Structure formats: C-alpha cells, structure tokens
Amino acid sequence: MPSLRWQALGWQALALAAVALVIATFTKNASQHLAARHIATGFGFLQQAAPIPIGESLLSYTPSVSSYGRAIVIGILNTLKVSIPGCLLATLLGTLIGIARLSPIPLLARLAALYVETLRDLPLLLQLLFWYGVFQTLPAPRQSLKPFPGIFLSNRGLRLPALVWQSGFGVILLAACAGLVLALILARRTALSPHPARRFAAFLPIPLLPALAFAVLRPAVVIEWPALHGFNFHGGMMVSPEYAALATGLVLYTASYVAEIVRGGLMSVARGQWEAGAALGLSRAAALRLIVLPQALRLIIPPMTSQYLNLVKNSSLAVAIGYQDLVSIADTALNQTGQAIEGIGLIMAVYLTISLGISLAMNLYNARLARRTR
C-alpha cells in the first residue's frame, strides 16, 4: 500500500538522519579536542619518515628514511603473508581431520576427535604463546638442527635454500597455473573413466606446461644456500620464529573448526549416496570425492567463509608474539605521531576491505555451486 511505503521511507530517512547527526557530533567534538591539544589531523603523516624498525618485510625498507605509508603497506603485506597460506593450509588440514572423524577405523576417528576437542577449547592467544615458546627453545645457530642438507632450524628461525628470481620465471609460473587449470578441467571429464591411465594422464599438464616453458626460455637457475657467518645465518630464505609460531597456531586452531564444518557437511548427505557409489563400483574414496563431497559443499561453504574471516582477524594477535603485522606497525605509528583516529581508521579500513573481498569471492563461488547442483 502507498501509505505503508511512504511510512517505511520516512523511518529510513529518520534513521539516516540520526546516524548523520551522531557522526557530525563525533567529528566536531574530536576536532575541537584535537585542536585544543595541538594534535595534527589528516593523513599527511603517511609521507613523513618512519623511525620504525621492521625485521620482516617483503619490500625494501629503511628506518628513518622510508615513510609511514610504506611501513603501513609492509604491515598489510605481512598480514596477507600469514593469512593467505593460513586459509589454504587450514582448509586442507581441517578437511582431512573432518574426514578422519568419520573414518571406520575407531583409533583414527578418536584421535581426530581428540584433536578437535582439545584445540577448540584452548584460547588462541595461549596457543600462539605456546608455539612461540617452542620455537624459542630451539638450539642456537651454531648448534642448529639440520634435518636436510642446506636446511637449518634454530631459535633464529628456519633457513632454507632460495631460488634467485630470473626474468623468465614469470612466464614459467603462468604456464604452471595454466597447467593446473587444464588438469582440473581434464580431471573432471575423466573422473568416471574406467581406465586408470586416462585419469592419470589428466594431471600431466601440471608438470609438462612449465617444463615446456622452461625448455623454451632456458633461464639460469641460481640457488642461494644459507651459510653460518658469526652468530647468525646469511643467504637463503628465512622463516622467522614469530611468523612460524603465528602461522602454526592459526592453522591448527582454525583447522579444528574447519574439521567440524566438513564433518557436519558430510553427515548431512544421505547414506544412500554412499551406497549408490558402492553400487557403481566406486571405492569409498572415489564416492567421497565424486558424489558425497560435491553435495556437502553447499552446506560447507557458508560457515567456511566465517572461518576464513576469523583467521584473518585473529592474525591481529601477532602483536603478542612480536610479529609485525598491520596492527603492530600501525599501533607503533599512531603512538609516534599521536594520530590515533587516523591509525585506527586505517586498520579498520584494511580489515574491512580484506573481509569484504573474502566474502565476495566465497559468495560468488557459493552461488555458482548452487546453480551447478540445482
């Protein structure tokens, strides 16, 4: 009815006006108090030199020379560096544990249940402190552990051989991605093939395409090996104890929730689907991969999105173990400049952008999955 429609619009306009009034009042009061204390406002401080020491960075950075803006960007990259691999590893580990909870082997199912119940009931911050303590108790560099040649594990972190990037590696990486996509397409088409050779051949593009690109471009392969000089290692690739502790804690903690999501999704599929797969001559693993899991994904994806968001937000606990992520660097910057509102606003904006990006990607995938399984 027209009257109800105008009434609804009126209430929405009133609510919008109330929100605008609250924002205006807050802005006015904040501006007056900042001016009274002679505190500058705005984001001009991002151009100033930042005397923040940053021990782990994907970009070049020099304290007291590089700007606060560059330091904030490094913090964002450090957050993504732990969040993206964390989501992938937590998904893989949680899926395996969730499947193990439904295993017909009682010992395996009980061990998986023990893992889930133990890690879900312990605070994440406590787990991060525990893993940080574990990595700090490793021997010094001179007595470092050497599980494999060229790999050193000590209280300074994990040192690995590093491949020096060459100009042709970008094309090889693109060829590897193309091979992975092509292999996934071929694997779907040959999944029900009775010939094992055809199912195996579907995955050949993964090594063949990058090998072909490498044979054509022939870039130089240079490996930088770590070596002990004095009291520390030089060369190679370093995984710091702070990063290792944060990544380990986030992955193990989130995987316990992912496992329950996967278990619930698999249990929602009728038992007759397993029996149908067995009647077709499929093994239990093949029935899970081809019949049960695709149906369970409709219930798994929405709560899985929440766990990805939680992992990204939980990465802000890195400040407790000394890993310099966005929160740590921004907090140091706002303490040095006194511009707390702008600093907190930047943190909120970055986390909001990352969360909205994850939600959008997962919702698009969920919508596509719903159309495909309708």
Rank of each mutant, 00 (worst) to 15 (best):
P2Q: 12
L4M: 06
A8R: 10
A20E: 07
A20M: 10
T25D: 09
F26T: 06
Q32E: 02
Q32C: 03
R37V: 05
I39E: 09
I52D: 00
P63S: 12
V65K: 13
S67P: 10
G69Q: 08
R70E: 12
I72W: 07
L80C: 13
S83E: 10
S83Y: 09
S83G: 09
G86A: 10
C87A: 11
C87K: 03
T91S: 14
G98T: 11
I99M: 15
A100S: 13
A100T: 06
L114W: 14
L122M: 06
P123R: 02
L124Q: 01
W131P: 02
Q136N: 08
T137S: 15
P139F: 01
P141R: 00
P141I: 00
R142Q: 08
Q143R: 08
Q143K: 14
I151S: 10
I151N: 11
S154M: 10
S154I: 04
N155F: 06
G157I: 07
P161M: 01
A162V: 01
Q166Y: 03
G168E: 15
F169T: 00
C177I: 03
L182P: 00
L186Q: 00
R188N: 14
R188Q: 12
L192E: 06
S193Q: 02
H195E: 14
A197L: 11
R199L: 06
A202L: 04
P205A: 06
P205R: 00
L209H: 08
V222M: 09
A227Y: 13
M237P: 03
P241C: 01
P241T: 04
E242D: 11
T248Y: 08
L252V: 13
Y257I: 00
V262I: 15
G264Y: 05
G265T: 05
L266P: 06
S268G: 06
V269T: 11
V269L: 05
A270C: 02
G272P: 04
G272H: 10
Q273V: 08
A279C: 14
S283L: 06
S283E: 09
A285D: 10
A287H: 11
A287D: 04
L288C: 13
R289S: 05
I291P: 09
V292D: 07
A296W: 15
P302Q: 15
N310S: 14
K313R: 15
A318I: 09
A320W: 05
V327Q: 15
V327G: 11
S328T: 03
I329T: 08
A330L: 09
L334R: 13
N335I: 07
N335C: 01
Q336C: 03
Q336F: 07
G338A: 03
G338S: 13
G343R: 01
G345K: 00
G345S: 04
I347H: 08
M348E: 06
M348V: 13
A349E: 07
S355H: 02
G357N: 12
L360A: 07
A361G: 01
L364K: 10
R372Q: 10
R374W: 07
R374N: 04
